[in-house]
């Protein structure tokens, strides 16, 4: 009788453990996603400043600047899904990258301290977003493993938890950041 009771308690404790573990992993995924969101917000906030600074010097890049401003407007708009926001961020990222390359044609801008600060903050935000995305993917993988493997899958079925897709890593993120590439084009 006592053995049965002990076994029942043990099963109950293990069950609670697995259940809680699933919930915590699911929350972790949500948390990791909101971290990306915070980083994206920070990055988008840099744009008006960047556009303003660059505008004074760059005569021929008007189109790019308008495009960046537009994309930012879209990304910060209401009712933008998370995946759209990430896609917009990638577009903004490549537009800014193009802008940074054309900076080479404007020596005065290259010497502007404010611009240089913005440029390094931008690169930093890029690395931080890459880190946040990797963190998200790691949380998703842990969660997916828990949901798909025994015994977690039994509880996941009951809770209606489904595996989540990881974020694709953009080709640029896989590359090593190199100062040479960025500044000495």
């Amino acid at each position: 009788m006592i053995i049965v009771a002990i076994l029942a308690i043990a099963v109950l404790i293990i069950g609670i453990g697995i259940y809680n573990s699933l919930i915590s992993k699911k929350n972790q995924v949500a948390n990791a996603f909101s971290a990306i969101d915070v980083m994206l917000k920070k990055r988008f906030d840099l744009l008006p400043n960047l556009v303003e600074t660059v505008k004074q010097y760059m005569e021929y890049e008007g189109d790019t600047l308008t495009k960046i401003t537009e994309l930012r407007g879209k990304a910060l708009g209401t009712n933008v899904s998370e995946s759209d926001k990430l896609a917009l961020d990638q577009q903004i990222g490549s537009a800014v990258k193009g802008l940074m390359v054309s900076v080479e044609n404007y020596p005065d801008l290259k010497a502007n301290q404010n611009f240089l600060n913005l440029q390094s903050t931008w690169t930093e935000s890029e690395e931080q977003i890459a880190a946040a995305r990797r963190n998200y993917n790691s949380s998703v993988t842990t969660y997916n493993n828990a949901v798909m493997m025994f015994p977690g899958n039994m509880f996941a079925g009951m809770l209606g938890y489904q595996p989540i897709a990881v974020l694709e890593t953009a080709e640029e993120e896989r590359k090593n950041v190199s100062a040479k590439e960025l500044f000495n084009n």
Binding site: R134, N137, N176
Partner: peptide, 27 residues
């Protein structure tokens, strides 16, 4: 938990900030 298998095979990584750890330990 980092993505680099070789790195994970040799090391255990602890951090007070999961994102910051990845910001430092880039691929």
């Amino acid at each position: 938990e980092l993505e680099n298998e070789n790195f994970n095979k040799n090391f255990v990584i602890y951090s007070t900030d999961q994102i910051e750890a990845r910001y430092i330990l880039t691929p």
